[in-house]
Design a protein around this nucleic acid. Structure first.
Length: 152
DNA sequence: GCCAACGTTGGC
DNA sequence: GCCAACGTTGGC
């Protein structure tokens, strides 16, 4: 069982949007970064738990928990010329990009903000708080996961 | 809206 | 295969 963190801009897709989806499931598409792609393709497994992180907003931070309900499969949004994330170098026979499906588990009692996480010496090695980090998907160790949840 | 950090692209 | 130019991310 592994733990993850996934970022989303709430203006684009927030945890409220996830709650309103049919069955509260969302295909996590549009990721166009190879490191993040590789994690979805190779490492994210059914039942893994994921922090939902709101980025690029007034109160950036962890707002909830999701669960992986479908493992890596081709991101067909890359095939659609009308899609914002269309990639002409990807097609159905040779898909370049992958996605997983995630399902809403619960909202945190409060937002655990980036500001707060940055103050914790226990999280000094956590990718999220590293300066200049831009990965939209990252692994979270069990120790980090438990520590962060204990802040709730 | 600014801008630093970073990944990707493409010329050579 | 180097690296400058460019585009994007995301905190502030």
């Amino acid at each position: 069982m592994n733990y993850w963190l996934m970022k989303s801009e709430p203006d684009t897709f927030s945890i409220d949007d996830l709650m309103r989806r049919p069955n509260q499931i969302e295909p996590w598409d549009g990721v166009r970064n190879y490191q993040a792609r590789n994690m979805m393709r190779d490492d994210m497994k059914l039942g893994d738990l994921v922090f939902f992180y709101h980025s690029n907003c007034a109160e950036a931070g962890i707002v909830g928990i999701m669960e992986v309900v479908k493992e890596g499969y081709p991101d067909s949004s890359a095939f659609d010329p009308n899609d914002k994330h269309f990639d002409p170098k990807s097609d159905a026979t040779k898909p370049r990009w992958m996605r997983v499906d995630v399902k809403y588990v619960r909202r945190l009692a409060r937002t655990i903000t980036l500001k707060e996480l940055k103050l914790k010496t226990e999280l000094a090695d956590f990718t999220l708080v590293k300066n200049g980090n831009r990965l939209s998907i990252m692994p979270v160790s069990k120790v980090q996961w438990d520590f962060i949840l204990a802040l709730e």
